[in-house]
């Protein structure tokens, strides 16, 4: 067995999970909501990219420039969707029992999945442009340029988010709200707007991951968000939910575990019980 190869593919898969896990963790950190529709936003991102690609394929041509343009469009669309979701399904319930929001989250997840199934049909769609490429050999392992590029994009996005949360004004507002929303309101922070913005950013990241998955794997379907949603959730938990750097770390750990053939659904139970115990004390 080639261990270097396993590590590399684990890192690659982990970077996908990380983009989705970040949104999970952000939303949880700020409003303590397990957003079960988050995985479906990833799926919506993939379909948004697909639509842009189908409509404007001729104008854009192929290659990475086109991919990045499409990704930006899809990120804006998915981010908008996330904001809409928050406005329609979550904000009216902010003063309601916490579990009620869980129900609307699951409801939103159903609505998104089957909304897409109605709009695009249940048959999987194939991305019209794939990223075709050469291969890089490192020792006895190989990485495709596409994998490198995808990982690079993911890292850039993650670094941008980290900077945003750590150094900007609105990042400070997010961190403040996660600690004490009531005090923020008293201090004149526009809580609604910050939460909206958080949803936009989290959803846009998921959308970017969706487009990347579409372009790299080539196949998208309306239920593709479910499994990755559960995994991202697991990753966020392993890293300590609400902690952004932790979510990235958790995602990479999960990617590596999978790559080494650990059945992760079971592993997630074990690891989460461990991490949970470390939190409770």
């Amino acid at each position: 067995m080639n261990h270097l190869q396993l590590v590399l593919s684990g890192l690659f898969v982990g970077s996908f999970y990380a983009l989705v896990a970040l949104g999970y963790s952000m939303v949880y950190g700020i409003i303590k909501l397990l957003n079960f529709a988050h995985g479906d936003l990833y799926m919506v991102g993939a379909f948004a990219g697909f639509t842009v690609l189908s409509v404007g394929a001729g104008a854009l041509g192929g290659g990475f420039v086109a991919l990045i343009v499409i990704m930006i469009v899809a990120m804006i669309a998915t981010g908008g969707f996330g904001m809409l979701l928050e406005r329609v399904a979550y904000r009216p319930l902010r003063s309601a029992p916490r579990l009620s929001v869980l129900i609307t989250a699951v409801g939103a997840s159903f609505a998104l999945e089957y909304g897409i199934a109605v709009a695009f049909g249940p048959t999987p769609e194939v991305y019209p442009v794939g990223v075709q490429d050469g291969t890089l050999h490192i020792a006895n392992a190989q990485v495709t340029y596409a994998q490198l590029a995808m990982t690079a994009i993911a890292v850039v996005l993650m670094a941008a988010l980290d900077t945003l949360v750590r150094t900007t004004r609105s990042g400070r507002a997010m961190r403040a709200i996660s600690q004490d929303p009531k005090a923020c309101l008293l201090m004149g922070v526009n809580v609604d707007r910050v939460i909206s913005r958080t949803f936009f950013i989290g959803s846009a990241l998921a959308g970017a991951a969706g487009v990347m998955a579409g372009a790299y794997y080539g196949k998208i379907d309306f239920l593709m968000g479910f499994v990755i949603g559960l995994k991202a959730f697991t990753a966020a938990v392993i890293g300590g939910i609400g902690n952004l750097r932790g979510a990235v770390l958790g995602a990479i750990v999960l990617g590596l575990l999978e790559s080494f053939g650990v059945p992760t659904s079971a592993a997630s139970g074990v690891t989460s019980s461990r991490s949970a115990s470390s939190f409770s004390s």
Partner: peptide, 14 residues
């Protein structure tokens, strides 16, 4: 960069 979970996990933005 930590968005810290509040002390009481169950206090939502309510």
């Amino acid at each position: 960069s930590t968005l810290r979970a509040g002390e009481k996990p169950s206090v939502y933005v309510s």
